[in-house]
Nucleic acid binder design. Sequence first.
DNA 1: CAGAAACGGGG
DNA 2: GTGTACGTTTCTG
Length: 594
Amino acid sequence: MQENVVILDIDYVTYEEKPVIRLFSKKGDENIILIDDTFEPYLYVVSDDVEECISEIEDNIDVVCVEKVIKKDFQIESEFIKVTFKHPQELAKNRDALRDLESVIQIREFDIPFYRRYLMDRDVIPMTEVTAVGEELETFMDLDSTKQDIKIIKLTERLERKKEYPQNFRILSFDLEVRNPHGMPDSAEDEIIMIGVASNFGVNQVISTKTNSEDRDDFVNQVSTEKEMIEEFVKIIKDNNVDIIVGYNSDNFDFPYLKDRAKILDVDLDIGMDESDVKFIRRGYSNAASFKGLIHVDLYLVMRRYMTLDRYTLERVYYELFGEEKIDVPGDRIWEFWDNEGEELDTLFDYSLDDVVSTLKIAEQTLPLNLELTRIIGQPLFDVSRMATGQQAEWFLVKQAYFDGEVVPNKQGSNFADRASAEDNEGGYVREPEKGLHENLVQFDFRSLYPSIIISKNISPDVMTLGKVEDEDDYNISPEHGIKFKKSPQGFIPSVIDKILQERFRIKRQMKASDDPQERIALDVQQQAIKRLANTMYGIYGFPRFRWYSFECAKAITSWGRQYIKSSIKKAEEYGFYAIYADTDGFYAKYKKE
DNA sequence: CAGAAACGGGG
DNA sequence: GTGTACGTTTCTG
């Protein structure tokens, strides 16, 4: 059978000791789970005696396949040994043993999560539409199409991607209010008093055990118990086939709280596509709340990247985006507003709805960009929405490297000694502003200064030399430190930036040519996403825990940057201007004469 | 002053 | 889940 579906999410399960990829997808209102058991985990081994190494691996390690392959390593074609395992956990278990074998110099690409490897190798891009060809199964492990509202397709062919991107996802925002007489609420004792929901499909309400005054807008959905509140919330999500659920700090407050209360009240929080519960995924020191086939985006994390503020409260973020104040109820008095009823209770209902409507508005403002980033990076929206920009750039590069036949560099050690030894790079040139109120200023700035320098000077570790060279004319040599970059061939990272900037110009041209306003907006978001990614690439060199970390490259970029801005200021001075303030890639200047 | 611990968001 | 935050402010000795 054949179906056109939109890929939302991915995971893998173990069936008969083999890993099986599951792609959570939708076709309109229909939930479709694609199953693929044809992908196996692998890594690469570097050895100076390939034949000897292959037999040593075969003798000592339980592997599916060991083979010699030709891949590029910093653009140089090299022999690698590709070692394929039966299961990702086998790979993890044997990683150290493999590294310790005598004939093994180095192992590579051993720390790429299985589902990410699948997305890259099979060129499957989340949030795009694909044609799936396969056979329909009635059940697969705990998936049961006769009991659950799902269709299961076991893939028999590679997925084929459609050109057009789906734009209309069903988005629902939610927010809890909790009775908290002792300061911050404790889920063991303090009941949920309101669950606000807002959506782009017409459902906007506050579920509560109380209701607001009769003369007010009737947006309260009154139920009799806290348990029914949660059940009603679950029902709304299921009945409306939500694609993306958003909250504000919902990873660390709303979902953990909801889960605790649901457990106490014996309610199933089974809102996953396969009716599974919320799962908390450890992410460093905090958690991320995750569902199967229902994408949860915590906007707090998104907004911290999206704009630069000193605080990221919902109130502040909303004000910065829309210039409007939100209804304010002091957190420590919410329980009083609830207990006092009357006017204060009405205010609390308004506050609850306002919170969730604001959250939805922020989602509608920021999700299009994140959807585009998801498609460019090629990793799930759930992950991309939680990644630091440097991580986004890195995963994008990992995917590009795969297409170029490159084996990606390993990460440096992440222990304290390595971090402490990381030197501080001198940043951009700053001229402190001249005090006073200035008039008739001119402004100058470079467009994408650092990405431009990376391309024009070909700054990339694979073409870098620190030692002596035969003919200096073949190299770009950085000011201050004399770091040399071969002029050709083009380095890996410059080539990637070059490619995406050309793609950006192509989109901008297409945008200008289009007279469909909807299409123009969509294209504008695409080019913005690319611009953000290009501007992040400099950071790839500056942080020791990134795969392409190169202190020399980072130093070279900023030193050329300082040279350019200083020489521009000097040039301006020759024409009778003088700079009253400069920072990194631009300056403000006054004309000397009146 | 250096290094450790806390903090953010949420109610 | 083949990856385990993170940059800044405040506290402590």
